[in-house]
């Protein structure tokens, strides 16, 4: 493949300047929007605390992070209130209900926004990461966007060791549209990490 282009009119000076400024602003606005959107969710979302178990992977492009596992992520579909034909990658709304100290249980999955949700319950929007098992005993694994927690290099293993004998929970901010964001970590009832807004 050649990188050569055929002869074409040169760009005028004003165009080069406008293109530079325009593209710079757009490419700054995208991460800017991500930040303000997330800050709003952390600030305004309803706080719920969910128990979790961290495991420690590492990725080249993402540095150290722990994967957080939740009870509400694995859903046994047998007799569960969910669409028949769940597909991998699809977006679903999960209704979760408190089941003891820091424990939550999923009670339904639906494509449309659930009607009549009890005040104590919360709705999380997630993606179906995988569906496995024979028909009749299928299990769905959901991702709600609160499964990764980035930590400084080397801290992932430390956190995992620390948690081995203690209970770790995540404080999650849940927006009215079902989106969820990690707001802080709680260990043995003590808030050990708070997510600053900026």
């Amino acid at each position: 493949m050649s990188v050569a282009t055929q002869s074409r009119p040169a760009m005028p000076r004003w165009w080069i300047l406008a293109a530079g400024i325009g593209i710079l602003l757009i490419q700054m606005a995208v991460p800017g929007y991500m930040i303000s959107d997330r800050a709003a969710l952390l600030k305004n979302g309803r706080e719920i605390t969910i128990k979790t178990v961290p495991i420690d992977p590492r990725s080249l492009f993402r540095g150290d992070y722990v994967i957080l596992r939740y009870d509400i992520s694995r859903i046994d579909l047998a007799g569960f209130d969910a669409p028949e034909d769940i597909r991998e990658g699809e977006r679903l709304n999960a209704v979760i209900t408190p089941a003891g100290e820091g424990e939550w249980k999923a009670v339904s999955l639906s494509r449309d926004w659930p009607q009549a949700v009890a005040n104590s319950d919360a709705v999380l929007t997630g993606h179906v990461a995988s569906v496995y098992g024979a028909s009749g005993s299928r299990t769905a694994r959901m991702r709600y966007g609160i499964e990764s927690y980035f930590v400084p290099e080397g801290e992932g293993k430390k956190l995992e060791d620390m948690v081995r004998e203690r209970a770790l929970s995540v404080i999650v901010a849940v927006g009215e549209d079902g989106r969820a964001a990690i707001k802080g970590l709680v260990m043995d009832g003590q808030r050990i990490y708070d997510e600053p807004l900026f």
């Binding site: 593209i23 710079l24 490419q27 995208v30 991460p31 991500m34 930040i35 997330r38 492009f61 993402r62 540095g63 992070y65 993606h127 991702r143 966007g145 609160i146 499964e147 990764s148 927690y149 980035f150 964001a181 990690i182 997510e195």
Partner: peptide, 22 residues
């Protein structure tokens, strides 16, 4: 280079805010 930094800032912001969408 500029477009690489643009991509990096999307990923870095996602890391800073633990954004773990799709």
């Amino acid at each position: 280079v500029g477009n690489g930094i643009y991509g990096a800032s999307i990923m870095l912001v996602a890391q800073m805010y633990h954004i773990d969408g799709n």
